[in-house]
């Protein structure tokens, strides 16, 4: 066995789970799918005194659609969501397929990926891209936090130690919205070195709304506001898309590590934004079904 010793509790209700989190505070760690946490435990990068396993908590594994949004319970496995989307959200479906491998997605949960907040992960960026919302519960009540405010740093979120992510809400793109998603990874299933996602809606040949998110390029998933502002209200030409991606890339704050320099990440981000936007625009205009 590799992890440092820990106590294990497996509550059956959200309230029970919150009691454990309240009692143990920073000493406790929530175990959902465990596909990021277990490696950290095995490496002893994380040494919680108590693991609060929420896998047997009832009522957290539903996928429903209300008010034009997918409501995804925190324990919904990524593999399950892949199938449950059923054509309603092609961008999200494409992103789920890029997470690890089948065996990872069989266990990995949607809420776990959001709460873990790896800056190179797909789901946090896609939630930011579609203006999604994170529902949390704590002993003091519920909060709904916009994705833009939730991710505050690498593996850091607005979640308090005694709060639990209970649901994520994914506003479904309006009919006719085009999407694009590109990432560069060393191997299939690896974390992205850099990725970009885009949702674009057109009306009368002009961009009505453009939403672009970049991941693996800095401390958190980032909305490319400069690209969005460049495109909105204009006729999307190849030159304009290029301008938009360049403007956004200059605003990024990429990190450097042993896999890629900051400057490399910025250049790749620019290219991937161009590709994601081009795909989204051609899908929105119906020329690439």
């Amino acid at each position: 066995m590799k992890p440092a010793p820990f106590e294990y509790v497996d509550p059956r209700t959200v309230d029970e789970a919150l009691d454990h989190l309240h009692r143990h505070g920073e000493e406790a760690k929530v175990l959902a799918g465990g596909q990021s946490l277990a490696p950290m435990l095995n490496f002893r990068l994380a040494r919680p005194a108590v693991l609060v396993d929420i896998n047997r908590v009832a009522g957290l594994d539903g996928v429903t659609e209300t008010n034009g949004a997918l409501r995804v319970g925190t324990l919904v496995r990524q593999r399950h969501l892949e199938r449950a989307i059923d054509g309603r959200f092609p961008l999200l479906a494409a992103g789920l397929k890029l997470i690890g491998h089948t065996a990872i997605r069989v266990r990995g949960t949607v809420g776990g990926s959001i709460a873990h907040a790896d800056p190179a992960a797909e789901l946090p960026a896609l939630l930011a891209c579609c203006d999604g919302v994170i529902l949390t519960r704590g002993r003091r009540g519920e909060r709904s936090i916009a994705a833009a405010e939730f991710f505050v740093g690498p593996l850091m979120t607005a979640l308090a130690p005694d709060e639990l992510v209970v649901e994520t809400r994914w506003p479904l793109p309006a009919p006719g919205t085009g999407w694009g998603l590109h990432e560069v990874a060393r191997r299939h299933g690896d974390f992205a070195l850099v990725g970009a996602a885009a949702l674009v809606a057109l009306s009368d040949g002009q961009v009505r709304s453009a939403r672009v998110a970049v991941f693996g390029c800095g401390a958190t998933p980032t909305r490319a506001a400069a690209a969005e502002a460049t495109l909105e209200g204009r006729v999307p030409t190849v030159a304009l898309i290029d301008d938009a991606a360049r403007a956004a890339a200059s605003k990024l704050d990429p990190h450097a590590d042993l896999h890629a320099s900051a400057e490399y990440r910025r250049r790749v981000a620019r290219t991937l934004m161009t590709r994601a936007l081009s795909d989204a625009i051609s899908r929105a205009s119906g020329s690439a079904r």
Binding site: G34, Q35, A38, P39, N42, T102, V106, R107
Partner: peptide, 10 residues
């Protein structure tokens, strides 16, 4: 019936 990593489960 589904494939999982047995090193990532307790």
């Amino acid at each position: 019936g589904q494939p999982v990593r047995s090193c990532l489960l307790f």
